[in-house]
Design a protein around this nucleic acid. Structure first.
Length: 593
RNA sequence: CGGGGCGUAGCUCAGCUUGGUAGAGCGCUCGGUUUGGGACCGAGAGGUCGCAGGUUCGAAUCCUGUCGCCCCGACCA
């Protein structure tokens, strides 16, 4: 719908809104696309809505291509379905809960797996009805602890969520692949750079999960990628264990005095000074085995203290630890944990700063050791590897302690941080670390929800089988912000053609009647030709203001009708390149096609 | 949820230290002059100074509480 700027419901701001930090937020507010209602909640003005609709249209087309049918669920949902799957509790403070007049519990849905599953259960009961893929474009509500960056993390956001239903694992693979392909087409059409990373699926009980990340410095996720094509979330990154080595030529372990070395840095310095390596190479942090005490809270509420051993040049990455120990909640051991250990007469107290798995009289860490404390090690602590580690005596470390010979662990675990240069597990070379914003997520849910909610169908043999599901999300409003983030320049927004709020922005620059006569005619002509035109017809606004607004609003094609209008010449202004080309007004419509 | 910062006109901000009739620029309205990079002159409209208590003759200003917002971190799409 072509519009005259003098009538369009919009007001551009000359200055940046003070509460907007990132470019997309700043510019969308300044250019009059959105207005803030509350933290993480936005109203949409005509310009913003038009862009949104265009993104939605592309998503709808590709959903149709993937064979998914559109449905629509209310955002307002009763408690029961979410109670059955445990998410009424699980979601905690993230859930917007409310009560009706009869005091019954409701929520504003943060996601719709439950009700989609129930609807299919309601209608279908035969394998012949499957596979089925259905989706909606609906607002989601999550009471985020910290909404931020405008549309990028709101408490109300619009999401396309699709769900697939199959009765075989192979069928799920096919449905999953169709959605995955659709996502690739969507992001390609939107001109959004993306990488597909393996995501951790374990905690949710699913089997396969990939995230579409748009690389950007303001991204919230850290991911790793190799030149050879490997990409993964840091949580999903796995470390290859070095091959086991023979102990035969290794010297026996030796306890040495290392006064005042409670940290890895001090230890390395003292080791090099007092106990240099016989081969002349200097000790490094990677030669040390750091033992970190963690406190786990298990699902049943019990508290467990565990120790993880990892090379001293790496920190524990708590996100990775969280995944590795899921579903237990992980934190570094608290003062209370240490006090409890000290109070227990059966556990020799651990010497903070000098903790290690070994003592001359036997193992100190491990389920079968004197303490019984579970001891898990990094994959790099492979059989035959030698370490400097705590001797459980203040001011002393043991040198040349060999895994497999002198100590063993209760298993390996991935808690160490991933560093740039680490080898990709698929052998495709060293990885680099990058920041990304999640713009899509495809997920094989498996039978978790179908089981919980009793979605079964009869198979070919007349046997009841539980349906297997996938869920596939794309954040519509987030994508809009990510596009704005990726395409703006210092002067304003700069939309790709297929999502720009208008096809053409006409600027009437000048006060002579002829300027407006030519502009009016052009506006009518282009609209008739099927273009969606924004016409800056404001009579008393100076050209400078109009140019500035045109740049701010970001329609890619701008036509300036000005000083040469009387001669039938206008200018074609390419918003992206800034280039202005004089053109005869007569055949402009065909030139733009 | 931890740390930091901020709430005064539609927007960006000053005033608060040292209590005394609420200000500027932009935007908006009217009149006039301007019109190729955010023009000018004149006249206007617009604010319970986030909210609630308190201190005081008197509070935007001091005190207490509370709500909201932004940023960093933790967490999450």
């Amino acid at each position: 719908m072509s519009s005259r700027l003098s009538e369009l419901f919009v007001r551009t701001l000359r200055e940046d809104p003070v509460d907007a930090e990132v470019a997309s937020h700043r510019l969308l507010v300044r250019a009059g696309y959105i207005r803030r209602q509350a933290a993480g909640v936005f109203a949409w003005l005509p310009l913003g809505l038009k862009v949104r609709r265009k993104i939605e249209a592309i998503v709808r087309e590709e959903m149709a291509n993937a064979g998914a049918q559109e449905v629509h669920f209310p955002a307002l949902q009763p408690r029961e379905p979410y109670e059955i799957t445990g998410r009424w509790e699980e979601y905690g403070d993230l859930l917007f809960r409310l009560k009706d007049r009869k005091d019954a519990d409701y929520l504003l849905a943060p996601t719709h797996e439950e009700v989609f599953t129930l609807l299919v259960k309601d209608l279908y009961s035969s394998y012949k009805d499957l596979p089925l893929s259905i989706y909606q474009i609906q607002d989601k509500y999550r009471d985020e602890a910290r909404p931020r960056a405008g549309l990028l993390r709101g408490r109300e956001f619009t999401m396309k969520d699709a769900y697939s239903f199959d009765y075989t694992d192979a069928g799920l693979d096919v449905s999953y692949q169709k959605q995955r392909d659709a996502y690739e087409r969507i992001f390609t059409r939107l001109g959004l750079e993306y990488v597909i990373v393996q995501a951790d699926a374990g905690a949710m009980g699913g089997s396969r999960s990939e995230e579409f990340l748009h690389p950007t410095p303001i991204g919230e996720d850290t991911f790793v990628r190799s030149a050879g094509g490997y990409a993964a979330n840091v949580e999903a990154f796995t470390t290859e264990a070095p091959a086991a080595r023979s102990y035969e030529k290794l010297t026996p372990a030796e306890v040495l005095s290392t006064p005042d070395t409670p940290t890895i840095a001090t230890l390395v310095a003292v080791a090099n000074e007092k106990h240099p390596r016989p081969d002349g190479r200097a000790w490094t942090a990677a030669d040390t085995l750091k033992n970190i005490v963690l406190g786990l809270t298990h699902l049943d509420g019990t508290r467990e203290v565990v120790v993880v051993g990892l090379p001293g040049d790496r920190e524990v990455d708590m996100k990775r630890a969280e995944v590795a120990f899921a579903p237990a909640v992980v934190e570094t051991a608290t003062e209370a944990d240490f006090l409890r250990l000290e109070a227990d007469a059966n556990t020799p107290s651990l010497v903070k700063g000098y903790i290690g798995p070994w003592t001359p009289t036997g193992a100190l860490l491990g389920e079968d050791s004197a303490t019984g404390i579970r001891y898990l090690t990094d994959p790099r602590v492979s059989d035959g590897s030698g370490w400097i580690t705590g001797a459980n005596v203040h001011g002393h470390h043991v040198f040349g302690l060999v895994a497999g010979r002198d100590f063993s662990s209760d298993g390996t675990i991935e808690t160490a941080e991933v560093l740039a240069g680490d080898p990709a597990p698929d052998g495709s070379g060293p990885v680099e670390l990058a920041r990304g914003m999640e713009i899509g997520h495809v997920f094989q849910l498996g039978r978790k929800y179908a089981e919980a909610l009793g979605l079964k169908v009869l198979d070919e043999n007349g046997k009841l089988v539980t349906v297997t599901m996938g869920s596939y999300g794309v954040g519509i409003t987030r994508i809009l912000a990510v596009i704005a983030e990726a395409t703006n320049d210092g002067k304003g927004l700069l939309w790709p053609k297929n999502v720009a709020p208008f096809d053409i922005h006409i600027v009437a620059a000048g006060r002579e009647d002829v300027v407006y006569e030519v502009s009016d005619a052009l506006y009518a002509q282009l609209t008739d030709a099927g273009f969606d035109v924004l016409y800056d017809d404001r009579p008393k606004v100076s050209p400078g203001v109009k140019f500035g607004d045109a740049e701010l609003i970001g329609v890619p094609v701008i036509l300036i009708v000005g000083r040469d209008a009387a001669e039938g010449t206008i200018e074609l202004w390419d918003r992206r390149t800034g280039e202005r080309t004089p053109m005869p007004v007569a055949n402009i419509a065909s030139a733009l096609r």
